[in-house]
């Protein structure tokens, strides 16, 4: 049904509010250091972030819930509920920076002059779907830091020019230095994809590029209802 996103869009347009839907728990990030840490202009406009309540349940219980939700899918994608990004889907945020996929469809930044710690990959969802989970696969064998993977949304009016409004929807980070890792987070509230006004992307944030292939982003995936 298109009516719901259309009306939602119109409501947002009418209110002049592209920032968030009413059911989205958000907070503003205004600290320049926090903005810079995410690859944003520290002197630029603030961005929003969904407030994610920590899920303290055991991982096994959370995974069991995920598997229960994942029912069979239709042929050809009618019921496909995920989208993923990987490897050269990512593009570093500066042309002089260096990366490698090792030929194995992962993504790492490399030390060089100059480096860039951030890379973005556009991701597309079916319209008007509630975004539920953000899944991240990483490889971390570096003692010098962790690699973070974040999901962002940028919204602008459907048919006019206006400053974009950015929202951080989810983030995951590798931990320790134990090698391959998987983690996921539930996207709180009722965050629905709105393709007429919003675009989505996944951002990687490396702590440094000297770690090289000790820090890899293997894949990121968004699952929706």
């Amino acid at each position: 049904m298109k009516s719901i996103p259309v009306l939602g869009t119109l409501a947002l347009l009418a209110c002049g509010n592209l920032a968030a839907q009413a059911s989205e728990p958000v907070e503003w990030i205004t600290d320049p250091a926090e903005l810079a840490a995410r690859g944003f202009d520290p002197d630029g406009p603030p961005i929003q972030r969904l407030i994610i309540e920590p899920d303290t349940r055991p991982l096994a219980e959370r995974l069991a819930e995920r598997e229960l939700i994942e029912t069979s899918v239709d042929v050809g994608g009618g019921n496909v509920r995920w989208a993923s990004v990987q490897a050269t889907d990512f593009m570093l945020l500066g042309d002089e920076a260096a990366y490698t996929t090792q030929g194995n469809f992962n993504f790492s930044c490399l030390a060089g002059a100059p480096t860039n710690l951030f890379a973005d990959a556009p991701i597309h969802f079916r319209d008007d779907r509630r975004l539920r989970f953000f899944d991240v696969w990483t490889h971390d064998s570096s003692a010098s830091g962790d690699v973070e993977v974040l999901l962002y949304r940028v919204c602008q009016p459907a048919f006019t020019a206006e400053a974009p409004v950015v929202t951080e929807l989810a983030s995951r980070s590798s931990t320790g230095s134990g090698g391959n890792q998987f983690s996921f987070v539930s996207i709180p509230g009722m965050v629905h994809s709105q393709n007429s006004i919003c675009s989505y992307w996944v951002r990687t944030r490396f702590p440094n590029c000297t770690a090289g292939i000790d820090l890899k982003v293997l894949k990121a995936r968004v699952v929706w209802d």
Partner: peptide, 16 residues
């Protein structure tokens, strides 16, 4: 033409 796979909900090395 490559297929690159990872486990669904667990860690692992990519299998290409």
């Amino acid at each position: 033409l490559f297929e690159s796979c990872l486990p669904n909900l667990s860690a692992g090395a990519p299998v290409n």
